[in-house]
Amino acid sequence: MKLAKTYAFLKKDLSVIEDALEETVYANQPVLHEASVQLLKAGGKRLRPIFVLLASKFGEYNLSYIKNVASSLELIHMASLVHDDVIDNSNMRRGKPTVKAKWDNQVAMLTGDYIFAKALQQFTEIQQPRAHQILSDTMIELTMGEIEQIKDKFNIEQNFRTYLRRIKRKTALLISSSCQLGAIVANTDKKTETALYRYGYYMGMSYQIIDDILDFTASEKELGKPAGSDLLQGNITLPVLFAIEDPALHKELSTLFRNPAHIKGETLLPIIAKISSSDAIKRARKVSDMYLQKAYDSLQVLPNNQAKEALENIANYIGNRQI
């Protein structure tokens, strides 16, 4: 099933969010405006707004209020991506030139700061202090996750727990917060809020693990960036952690990582091939499935409705992304 079909009943509401996004990033300064709109038009699944809307369906669904959360979270996600491209020195994202590639690093930094500020301005329409505490905690954790990622680069002695903690901060928390904030602004009961938070957290963990697997198994065309990019950047993801349990591969990678400055894409190709064909992919997939199962389980306490069905379908879609 196509992802969009699972939440087709939100189509009208999502188009309201899309308008809100475009309106929010409007800038008088032409370059800033163009860079922000380019990011917006680059697409993306709008997963965070979708999670906000679906979570809100379990409470008092007031779109004109909820849209402030949905669009702010997407903007925060976008702002972090534009800064990430400076960090990773990436020229392409989703098959299109990044802001830093089309203009330069300074424009990318300013665009990220601008979008972040616009997101916060929009979010202050929400007058519930707890919502702000959750979002601000999430944003700090998100940055901490990125700092941890740099700290752990080219370090093959890191363990499973380090990896999980990192992807929790880097990806899962913004998704779990999207679900939780959707619940909070719709004034759901505490039990519903917790269930949605957990669902988002487990989904986020599964989503990132699958992203990390796809980095080895998908083609450049599918990824919109060269396969094996994570490893080239020195990021040790779950497939790598499993694969280097093989002492020979551990030794090979450890030798290469001693001189990170000299690593080129082609040097890594044989290692990428070994990881792709090892059982590491299957084992990583199993961990992702465990998180997915937990995501399904979290939904059990919720009443049966269209939103619950959509959340289950999204989990299903995430779990079956082409590996």
Partner: peptide
């Protein structure tokens, strides 16, 4: 890290004001 430091300091500003409810 300079990119992330700026993001981190922004996060702290928001965190402090969110916790003192100064919207």
């Amino acid at each position: 890290l300079t990119v992330l430091a700026g993001d981190y300091y922004s996060g702290i500003y928001y965190h402090l004001l969110a916790n003192s409810n100064d919207l």
